[in-house]
C-alpha cells in the first residue's frame, strides 16, 4: 500500500490583513500515503494546525493545490467538498466539539444523519461505541462524561461513516496521561486494523514517535521529515 491519497502542493495561507497579516503557511508540500500514520509536530503558532485543517478541507488555502487521489480539490464545488468530508474524512479535535444537549448516540450518529443514511443508524452507532467501550453510555448526555470518555465519543463519531483518512488535532491535548494513552491506542488500532490513514497534530514527542512518519513545521515551512516512512 504505497498509493498517495492526499497531496499538498506548495500551499500558502494567511490570516488577517494589512499590518496584522499573519502568514501561517508559507508554501508547504506533502504527500500522504494510504494507510500510513503521520504526525505533524511543531511549536504552537508554527502552522501545524493550519496545515491539518487545509488537508481536511476545513479551510481554503490562499495559494497552492491539494489533490485527493490525484484529483485537484480546488476545482471541487463546496457541495462536493462537503460530501468528501462527510464520507471520506473523520475529524477528532482537542476540545472534542460534542453537543452537550444531545446524547452520546445522537452525537456519534451525526455524520450518518448529515449524510442522509437512514438504515441501521442505531445498530452502527452501538457497534462503534461497543468497540470503544461506551455502549452502555449511549443514551446519556455527553455533559456527564469524563474527558477521556468524551474524546472516545468524538473518535466514535469520526469513524462511524468509515472514513479513509482520520484527522486528529491534538487528540490527547486535553486529557491526562492515562486517558491520553487509551485514546492514542484507539487511534493506532483503527490505523492498523482498519487501514485508516491517520494524520495527527501533536506537540507530544511520545505520541509523535508512535507514528510511522513525523514532519516538523516551523514558522510556516516544512522543516524535516523523519521516521520509518521518511523515505516516502
Amino acid at each position: 500500500m504505497t498509493e498517495t491519497v492526499l497531496s499538498v502542493r506548495d500551499i500558502q495561507k494567511s490570516y488577517g490583513s494589512g499590518s496584522g497579516r499573519f502568514r501561517a503557511l508559507k508554501g508547504v508540500s506533502l504527500n500522504l500515503v494510504e494507510g500510513e500514520s503521520l504526525a505533524i509536530v511543531g511549536k504552537s503558532g508554527s502552522g501545524k494546525s493550519t496545515l491539518l485543517h487545509l488537508m481536511g478541507l476545513l479551510d481554503i488555502p490562499d495559494e497552492g493545490e491539494i489533490l485527493y487521489r490525484g484529483k485537484s480539490l480546488s476545482a471541487l464545488t463546496s457541495r462536493a467538498a462537503d460530501t468528501l468530508r462527510n464520507q471520506e474524512f473523520g475529524f477528532v479535535f482537542q476540545s472534542f466539539h460534542l453537543d452537550p444537549h444531545s446524547t452520546v448516540a445522537e452525537n456519534v450518529s451525526m455524520p450518518l444523519v448529515i449524510g442522509g443514511v437512514k438504515k441501521d443508524r442505531r445498530r452502527r452507532v452501538i457497534e462503534v461505541l461497543d468497540r470503544l467501550g461506551l455502549a452502555d453510555r449511549a443514551d446519556e448526555r455527553t455533559s456527564v462524561l469524563s474527558g477521556g470518555q468524551k474524546q472516545r465519543v468524538a473518535i466514535a463519531r469520526a469513524v462511524i461513516a468509515k472514513p479513509r483518512i482520520l484527522f486528529a488535532d491534538e487528540p490527547t491535548g486535553a486529557l491526562d496521561s492515562t486517558n491520553g494513552e487509551t485514546v492514542s491506542q484507539l487511534l493506532f488500532d483503527l490505523n492498523k486494523q482498519e487501514g485508516i490513514t491517520l494524520v495527527m497534530v501533536t506537540h507530544s514527542p511520545e505520541l509523535a514517535s508512535t507514528c510511522v512518519r513525523q514532519v516538523v513545521i516551523s514558522d510556516g515551512l516544512l522543516l524535516s521529515t523523519s521516521g520509518e516512512g521518511a523515505a516516502r
Partner: peptide
C-alpha cells in the same frame, strides 16, 4: 457558532 462549524466540518452543506 461552534456547533454549526462542526456540522459543516462533518459535511453538512451550506444549503442545509
Amino acid at each position: 457558532t461552534r456547533q454549526l462549524g462542526l456540522f459543516r466540518a462533518l459535511g453538512m452543506p451550506r444549503r442545509t
